[in-house]
Write a protein that binds this DNA or RNA. Sequence first.
RNA 1: GGCCCGGUAGUCUAGUUGGCCAAGGACGCCGCCCUCUCAAGGCGGAGAUCACGGGUUCGAAUCCCGUCCGGGCUACCA
Length: 481
Amino acid sequence: MNHDIVRTRIEPAPSGSIHVGNARTALFNWLFARHHGGSFVLRVADTDAKRATEENYQAVLEDMRWLGLEWDEGPEVGGPSGPYRQSERFGLYDEAAQKLLASGAAYRCYCTPEELEAERARAQSEKRAPGYSGRCRHLTPSDIETFEAEGRASSVRFQVPEGRTITFHDEVLGEMSTELGLTPDFVIQRSDGSPTYMLAVTVDDLAMNITHIIRGNDLVASTARQILVREALGADGLPVFAHLPLLVDDKGRPLSKRWGDVAVRAYRDQGFMPEAMVNYLALLGWSFDDRTNIFSTEELIEKFSLERVGKNPAAFDISKLEWLNGHYIRGSHPDAIADALVSFCVRAGLPADTEEGVSILRRVTPLLTERMKRLTEAPPMIAFLFGGVEPDDKAAKALDGQDDYLRELSDRLASLDEWTTTSIEEAMRALAEERELKPKKAFQPVRAAVTGTLVSPPLFESLEILGRDETLVRLRRAAAK
RNA sequence: GGCCCGGUAGUCUAGUUGGCCAAGGACGCCGCCCUCUCAAGGCGGAGAUCACGGGUUCGAAUCCCGUCCGGGCUACCA
């Protein structure tokens, strides 16, 4: 087949927000296609009607877009090989199944689930391989007639040829080969007429001219079976395979076994930026050299190659993601961060979605960007700008015995000609010097009185944004206690 | 059980044809500096018997064999 025009694909199952392992696979496919000027296809694997809800389907599209992985062909953008939801391609799969049935590459299996289960249990207790025996391979016409008369449902199984060895090249793992002796005949079409993964993936990769199949290492073992189906369907040549190392959690367990908390959506809600997510994901199983960690999307496209994908499983480490996120927050335009912060503030109970709220956010965000690792850290730091704040325990302690000082300070601030960071700072430093107070000693009580905590954005700037009136109110109230 | 994949510091990794590696970078951690707090930034530090055991070689993280550990597949899931 022609590999010059690169075509890759991602095939997420709509089981809710896509999890980071799939996101990483999607990213690598996307980067590879972009790097080679090829096409990236999105195909939704919703053949399992039980899990594929419309809501989950929408979540997949939304996650992909949030990550910035725009697809060239797929749902909503269309393309020459559509439709791109497997649930809408059943006719194609059935056609393929019929073709394989007609050529003798596949046969009808009338075994019931109960029979298969019994067979499996027996094999297990006798410590034999639990695979299907292939007993429906050579049913006589009268056997079939009997089964049909009984109303037994039938699935379609692929007849695995014996004594063959399938070999293929894997860009990550090298030359691979599988002896077919241990591969049982596998189902390609369920008794309800729906295709299994083996059929659907093969038919679609063929129909969509996919040249490079980049996917998780968990699919290595299924490659030989897909090659078999491919051949039986009359395809010549093979796509290039690349099996990516699996992602594991901090205890070394596969990430795919733990849904929900590892979903892309969860990270978005926890205040991570898509740029950070993409950069971090790229570092999992791929490296450019011995020192570079930070890559813009453009750099990733330029530098990405399958040769530099490693073989060993990678653990998802939230602290490195946080570091990158902080980096991208600092590098973003403050206004963009401010806008993104609105929803996080609202969710935290701060009325930031008003004109005034947005204005406050825009003014305070520049003070925030270099001290955030996650967007969710902002609301607690700026709550004092959205309402009075009761001092916490530490702040209350810092306020002890400061009445006179705070009163004096409030008088001085009240008489300032203008209310700017500079004028506030000058006044506060002057008073501190007169009283021979070290800066920290002088400023922490003020911070406590105004923000209710001992940790906040820079003080003088914060006071300027809070405004003179409210600052004085808070200082005097603290002094009066 | 069988087949397959993997194993460099807590984590991501560099290390492609053996010597420049008594193993480099990054996150995290610890300390110092800066400093109105917290961060950011700067500087420094601890942390890896290169899973283990044998070989081959003047020399191995890098080659060979074995062992152990982890994982995947072995479904009418994908």
